[in-house]
Computed example of a mutant assay.
Amino acid sequence: MSHHTLTVWGRKTSSNVQALMWCIGELGLPYERYDVGHRFGGNDTPEFLAMNPNGTVPVLQDGLNQPIWETGAILRYLAGRYGDAPFWPSDPAVRAPADQWAEWAKINVTLAFTGPVFWRVVRTAPSRRDPVAIAAALEKLHAILAIAEAQLARHAFLAGGDFTLADIQFGHVLYRYFDIDIPRPSWPNVERYYHQLTQRQAFREHVMVSYDELRAHD
């Protein structure tokens, strides 16, 4: 399908932007990305808020279409418009497992990791860290990751035998999870899976990105 260059607003160190850019990379779509948010600012201007009243990134515009916000919605839009089976099957019954695991990852893994763990470990100055809160958050996160570990014992990818949109929603947090300084249980299947993701060019380019600019210092 021929299409215009996609326009993305959002800094490359945003984990949600990373999920979107990884998807764009997997689909081989041309894009322009503008650094917005965090140290770049620009997400509280009248122009940006007219596109996304939440002031969050990413925002995507495809040609003359209305801008889209909310990462899950953007990913499903791109997968539905430019992807095909097995990445995002058109048959709802065949697509359901990929959709189910994508949603699971978004509302469980991402929510249990980004705020409760990543912000407390990386985006909080060392003297202000709360080890008790971090330990409790890791216990919750690891109960969720145990579900992925069991699923990946049976399947090569999160939703089955093929790489799907579910892997983008789940896999984009794993680079930071395995990189930050936290105690981790042994996850042989998640680790095998993560190693497999690091072989993908779009993952290396868009997800394995330094987050040093987010690090808080005393």
Score class of each variant (00 low, 15 high):
Val17Gln: 08
Asn43Cys: 08
Asn16Glu: 02
Asn65Phe: 10
Arg123Asp: 05
Phe157Glu: 02
Asn43Asp: 13
Ala202Thr: 05
Pro188Cys: 09
Ile134Asn: 06
Asp179Asn: 09
Val8Gln: 09
Tyr211Lys: 07
Pro30Gly: 05
Leu214Tyr: 07
Trp69Asn: 12
Phe157His: 15
Val207Ile: 13
Trp9Glu: 11
Ser210Cys: 04
Cys23Ile: 02
Arg176His: 08
Ala150Met: 03
Leu27Trp: 03
Ala96Glu: 01
Ser186Glu: 13
Arg120Trp: 00
Pro46Glu: 05
Pro116Tyr: 03
Thr71Cys: 14
Arg39His: 11
Ser2Thr: 15
Asp212Glu: 14
Leu141Cys: 06
Ala96Asp: 00
Ala102Asp: 05
Ser90Asn: 13
Gly115Arg: 05
Asn16Cys: 14
Gln151Trp: 04
Asn52Arg: 00
Tyr31Met: 12
Lys140Glu: 14
Phe118His: 09
Ser90Asp: 11
Gly72Thr: 10
Asp167Ala: 06
Glu205Asn: 14
Tyr177Ala: 10
Asn54Gln: 12
Thr164Ile: 11
Asn52Ile: 08
Met21Val: 11
Gly41Trp: 10
Thr56Leu: 14
Asn54Asp: 07
Trp22Tyr: 09
Thr124Gln: 11
Ser15Leu: 12
Ala216Asp: 14
Pro67Phe: 05
Pro86His: 02
Ala156Gln: 12
Val94Tyr: 00
Arg204Ala: 15
Asp181Val: 12
Met208Val: 12
Pro188Ile: 09
Arg129Met: 05
Lys12Cys: 13
Ala159His: 03
Gly10Val: 12
Ala153Glu: 06
Phe87Glu: 02
Thr45Gly: 10
Val209Gln: 04
Ile182Trp: 04
Leu60Met: 11
Pro183Phe: 06
Thr198Gln: 10
His195Ser: 14
Asp130Pro: 02
Gln151Ser: 09
Arg129Gly: 01
